[in-house]
């Protein structure tokens, strides 16, 4: 009897619709967020993450309504990320029914925002999202930097040190995305995942690159992640959550098996 490793489907939301970018360019529509969330709830997903990729503030209001609609029907943890920049943004999402918010760029511009948010709302609802890219040359000791703008702009920050700093500021969880792997289906950057997971005492969610079920196992066993986030392998019906959990359980990973309702 122990804590289960979590499987978290991630829904990218643009103007109220779920989309998933492949390397953030070729975007396909995977449906209505409430419907998708309900399906994942029934399928036994452990949490759901909404990532708002909307650019305009009008459409951000749409996401608040989406969160409200989902939280009225789906009784599992919900995380909302994307465009969270102020305490008012956090308050609005929590009031809409989110349990956690993901903070990314705003943390880089203003690390004290994370400290303030953790103090005000509690660490349990503050997830710091880190987009990391390998900057070392092959043969060198691996090193990753934190990137913004979908992986196009380097901040010069060392990703492992940044994760430690954010945990120290009160982040309750780190959502770690490899921008090298995101959309590639080649699996997580396991060295990155492990380096960060070993460096912080808070849970780490591995993200970026899942193309098959073995990648999920690798993420928790080799990457030492506490949770795995994936999108396309679930959204397009290649694998069910139940298949993923059965696969992981058969390889010795503790997962929560869904009780029949």
């Amino acid at each position: 009897m122990t804590l289960a490793k979590r499987i978290i489907p991630c829904l990218d939301v643009d103007a109220g619709r779920v989309v998933k970018g492949v390397r953030f360019v070729d975007i396909r529509d995977a449906g209505d967020p409430v419907e998708v969330a309900r399906r994942y709830d029934q399928a036994g997903a452990d949490e759901i993450t909404f990532l708002d990729i909307t650019a305009s503030s009008d459409d951000r209001e749409t996401l608040v309504q989406v969160v409200e609609a989902v939280a009225a029907e789906v009784f599992m943890p919900l995380t909302v990320g994307g465009g969270i920049r102020t305490p008012a943004d956090i308050r609005r999402m929590l009031n809409a029914g989110a349990d956690k918010v993901g903070i990314n760029t705003a943390a880089i511009h203003q690390p004290e925002f994370v400290e303030d948010a953790a103090e005000r709302f509690g660490s349990q609802c503050i997830v710091v999202a880190i987009d990391a890219k390998r900057v070392s040359d092959p043969g060198e000791p691996p090193r990753w930097e934190v990137f913004t703008h979908g992986g196009r702009r380097s901040t010069g920050l060392d990703a492992v040190a940044w994760a430690q700093r954010m945990a120290h500021c009160g982040a309750g969880e780190i959502l770690l995305t490899s921008m090298d792997r995101d959309g590639t289906r080649e699996g997580f950057d396991l060295e990155l995942t492990r380096a960060v997971s070993d460096a912080v005492t808070v849970p780490v969610i591995a993200s970026g690159g899942v193309g098959g079920l073995q990648h999920l196992v690798d993420g928790v066993v080799e990457g030492r992640a506490d949770a795995v986030l994936a999108a396309s392998i679930f959204h397009f019906g290649e694998h069910t959550i139940a298949e993923a959990k059965a696969y992981m359980a058969a390889r010795g990973v503790t997962v929560r098996m869904q009780e029949a309702p």
């Binding site: 009897m1 122990t2 804590l3 289960a4 490793k5 979590r6 452990d46 660490s123 349990q124 309750g172 969880e173 912080v200 005492t201 808070v202 849970p203 780490v204 506490d226 949770a227 929560r256």
Partner: peptide, 15 residues
Amino acid sequence: AAPGKVPHMGWNQVR
């Protein structure tokens, strides 16, 4: 040794 991360976050069984 700590069995994992703190906070204890996620799904666990209750006897």
